[in-house]
Amino acid sequence: MRFCVCVKQVPDVTAPIQISGGQLSYDAGRVVLNAYDASAVEAALVLTAEHGGEVDVVLVGPERAAETVRKALAMGADRGTHLVADGELDSAAVSSLLAAVASGYDVILTGKQAQDSDAGLAGGMLAERLGLPYVTNAVGLAQEGDAIVVTRLGDAGQETIALPTPCLVTCSNDMNDPRIPNLKGIMAAKRKTIDTRPATDVPAARVTTLGYEPLPTRAAGRRLDGEPAAQAAEVVRLLADEASVL
């Protein structure tokens, strides 16, 4: 089957990120392939290794995001498309740009959410734009003939859902451990094609980010010392009298 995996470059959330003047600032070098998208790439590579097929990746982002496309190619993807766009795009705009590139594939994979926006929208939006059946928050993926069988984590438990192809699946990182590109993969990626072109017809954003704020401050915590019995007695007293939760 032919897979198209949508990958985003995001700031590394474990690196230092500051707020100044309502905007976020971080080291431009500390950007990564969105962890959920890495799992999507891994899933496509595993399925095509077993059943045959190919894996293309598509990214919307600034020039410097080319390295993230390259990273997916180094993992083993066959070809990349990089739609160059600067500035913040909401999930609706991104999904509209992705729709033009991702149509015609048997299976489209996205991450369940971007680690920076934590929105979790673009996958479902893309499926709707292309009229495809889809499943979100997949933790398992299998191919059975022409169908894709997805295990997803729902509210009540693990749901197993069969989708006819073409279809779209959004992936959780609980699905697999994405491979780290080896030297051979990195060398091979240098010879793979990236179709780089400017994003055109970027829809006007319906959603705008006015600015960023720190989290509301929590009251400074208290350490409870002493032997376990004393600690337990003190915390129960505080939970009952101070926090009123017991």
């Binding site: 920076d116 959603v207 989290l215």
Partner: peptide, 14 residues
């Protein structure tokens, strides 16, 4: 909350 709930984004929809 965004960025793994490290920050809050003030957003607006039209």
């Amino acid at each position: 909350p965004v960025m793994a709930s490290k920050f809050m984004a003030r957003v607006r929809a039209e």
